[in-house]
Design a binder for these strands. Structure first.
Lengths: 131, 131
DNA sequence: ACTTGACCTTCCCCTAGCTGGAAGCTCTAT
DNA sequence: ATAGAGCTTCCAGCTAGGGGAAGGTCAAGT
C-alpha cells in the first residue's frame, strides 16, 4: 500500500502519516522507488492512532498506548492508568471552559449589543472594575 | 514603571509582556538606558489582556477587543459579536470534550485494571472493533 | 571604589501537532 | 511523448509563549 491508500483507509492526512513516521510511531518499509510500503501492521497502528487522537490522547500517550497495544503480556491496569489520567485532564478542561462560559454568558446578557458605545463586556475587562 | 513592576501588577510574566510588545499589542516607551518605561496606559492594557486571555479569547480577539476598548465611539454590538462568537467556540469545545469524557468513562468502567492483559480500552482502539 | 545580586536587554531555540508549499522524481494513461 | 496524479524531501509557519545564554545596568553594602 502506498501512502495515499493508507491515508484514505486510516482517515489520516498523508502529511500526518509522514509526521508519525518522523517521530517514530510507525516504521513503514520502502519500495525500490523510495515510496513508503505500508503493511497491514502499519494500517492497524494508524487506525489505532486516529482513534486515540480523536479521544484527545496526546502523542506521547498514544506512543505508550501503542506499546501496550503491541505487548501481549501487558496488564490492563497500565492502560487504565493512562486513560484515567487523561480523563482527569479532560474533566479539568471542561471545568475551566464552563467557568469561562458562565462569565461570558453573564457579560453577553448584560450587553445591549446595539450601536451605543456603553458595553459591560469591555467595562468588565477594563481597568475600572474587578474581575 | 519597569517591566518587573508591571509584570507583578498585571499578573503577566515579563516574557509575555515582551511578546505582546513584539506582536504590537502594546508600545511602551524606552528610558535612556534602554529599559522599557511603562505608563498607566500600558498597565491598563496589560490588565485588560490578562483578563481577556483568562476568558480564553485568542490573541487576535484580544487585539480587536483592545481596539474597541480604546475607541470611545464603538458600538457595543461589535464587542458582543466577538464575545458571542467566542462563546460559541467554547461551547463547541465543551461539547467535544464531553463526548470524549463519555466514551472514556465507558471504556474505563469496562476495564478491569488488574494485571491481566485483556483490556477493553485497547480492544476498542484497536483494529478489530468499530469505534 | 568595588563587588554582589537583582533586574534589564536582545537573541535564538523549543514546545504540540501538525499544515502548506516548493522543487523534483515516478507512475499511469493517452 | 506528455500530462497529471502521486510520491519524495526539506523548509517555514501556525499559537502563545517558555528557557536560557550573553551581556548591560542599577542599588546596596563593604
Amino acid at each position: 500500500m502506498n501512502i495515499g491508500e493508507v491515508s484514505t483507509r486510516a482517515g489520516l492526512p498523508a502529511k500526518t502519516i509522514r509526521y508519525y513516521e518522523d517521530i517514530g510511531l510507525i516504521k513503514p518499509l520502502r519500495d525500490t522507488n523510495g515510496y513508503r510500503a505500508f503493511r497491514q501492521q502499519e494500517l492497524h497502528k494508524l487506525t489505532f492512532l486516529a482513534r486515540s487522537r480523536a479521544l484527545g490522547f496526546s502523542i506521547e500517550d498514544c506512543r505508550n498506548l501503542l506499546q501496550l497495544y503491541e505487548d501481549q503480556g501487558r496488564s490492563s491496569a497500565d492502560v487504565k492508568a493512562i486513560a484515567r489520567d487523561h480523563l482527569g485532564q479532560i474533566e479539568q478542561k471542561i471545568s475551566d471552559l464552563k467557568d469561562m462560559q458562565k462569565t461570558l454568558t453573564h457579560l453577553i446578557d448584560a450587553c445591549a449589543g446595539d450601536d451605543r458605545p456603553d458595553c459591560p463586556i469591555l467595562n468588565s475587562l477594563g481597568v475600572a472594575q474587578g474581575s
